[in-house]
Design a protein around this nucleic acid. Structure first.
Lengths: 251, 251
DNA sequence: AAACTTGTTTATCTATAGTGAACGGAGAGC
DNA sequence: GCTCTCCGTTCACTATAGATAAACAAGTTT
């Protein structure tokens, strides 16, 4: 009862996580890995199967696509997605690059919509999560928080260094967040992946534009996103797209 | 123990389902709806929140995007998706129509991959599920099953009539399945939605090509998919795409 | 300002989730 | 072809912990 009010649900979640990524596993295997009795693992798997979440074939278990269905439904139900989606698509059209709608969740930057530059060009996965301090959209999210909240974030999540360019110290982060909130625009110059660049603009909400709803971002390879294009052209397009979303959200 | 070996997990699932589609709800609301005590609902929600699955803001709860992340990971981990994905994209490219990879799961046709004809043209949602007897890919799935298995399907799932064109009787279904397995090709002429058409070809697997892995489908509005294009041109393209996937699966 | 909401907490109790051991079937190896 | 082994499943038991109802604490509404 110390951690999770409903322990059984926690166990189920652990089993599901162990099967994440399409891994196929047996009962004994999972039981040893999670330090739970075979019978218990079996019960959880049987329950999950009845729920349509896992599939079993001759004694081996794997996750089915029910959670994908659920997840897509959640995403489609988000009002922010509903109003932002056309603009995110339009932005991909006008820039010829991949675009995304990013929302904060549990201290992470989550990709609520992703539009690829072209087919067979999956850059980032829909629903994928990245640390706030390393991405353009993430830093934007932090820039709209109070000093204390940013400090709390650093405290709990730390400043993982994904590449040499990832912001390293709390003071560097603070400086960058200030300039970001001044311009109302954020960049990522290889802070997640060396050869990747992105620009993000905030989607504000509420009477005084104080509430932060999410961010729109354009992203792509450094070879295409650099110089004047990255610094001037794309920012303009991203900003105006974000602005249009803000207006659409108002009604 | 009658239904679900782990009752607590079942309760959690019921709560999650009640919140599906991005619905926001309070504790009391859910408690009444599901006939569970307030305290219990609260415990489950608190657990789900700690797991990063639900988000709460001033007493109201909703599902976050963690399940989407999980679901996408499951999909990306499917070997069938990995090998079929390029072909599904290519088929969308060459036909100019939407395409999909469909797999059977728990007696339903699940869309494991969807490639839209163009941006802003979402026809079917990724992960969405349709009854086997009404879709082209679904009937294909049934066509590769034994007579008994088909009968069992009808028994448990029934033959929901989605439109006037949906197959109605078990004998009609049997007849159609025979001609489908003869041609190795299936059509849907408005059986799910009146103004929708689709063609699907099977992806077979195993030594003697007896194991059924999934189906590739082209789908679109009846105004574009009709006549020679629907009956001859598209079938050829779909069949060859499916064949290429089968070959890629072999190695 | 009081009378409703609502979410949260508490204390009690019983159902049940977890355990270990036994069962049965499939495969491997001699 | 037989045994041995491994694994998934089932069984019976017990202590745990999920579910309950009632009290509590905030926040709205009237």
């Amino acid at each position: 009862m110390t951690e999770y009010p409903v322990g059984a649900t926690h166990t189920t979640a652990r089993i599901v996580n162990a099967l994440a990524g399409g891994r196929e596993a047996g009962v004994t295997e999972l039981a040893e890995e999670l330090s739970v009795s075979k019978a218990s693992v079996h019960n959880h798997l049987a329950t999950l199967e009845r729920l349509g979440i896992v599939l079993s074939s001759n004694g081996r278990y794997r996750l089915g696509l029910r959670l994908l269905d659920l997840g897509m439904g959640i995403r489609d139900g988000m009002t922010l997605y509903q109003t932002a989606s056309p603009e995110v698509n339009g932005l991909a059209e006008s820039t010829g690059e991949s675009t995304a709608l990013v929302v904060p969740e549990h201290g992470e930057a989550v990709h609520a919509a992703v539009e690829d530059a072209e087919r067979n060009d999956r850059r980032i996965r829909l629903g994928s999560r990245l640390p706030l301090h390393a991405t353009a959209a993430g830093k934007l999210i932090l820039a709209y928080r109070s000093r204390d909240e940013v400090e709390a974030y650093v405290e709990t999540h730390g400043l993982d260094r994904l590449t040499d360019r990832t912001v390293q110290s709390p003071s560097d982060l603070r400086d960058e967040l200030r300039s970001i909130s001044d311009r109302g625009l954020a960049f990522d110059r290889g802070e997640v992946w060396e050869d990747m660049r992105s620009v993000a603009a905030p989607i504000r909400q509420g009477e005084r534009g104080d509430a932060f709803a999410g961010a729109v971002a354009v992203l792509g390879p450094a070879e295409r996103l650099s110089g004047k294009r990255l610094e001037e052209d794309l920012p303009g397009l991203v900003l105006s797209a974000a602005k249009r979303i803000e207006l659409d959200l108002a009604d």
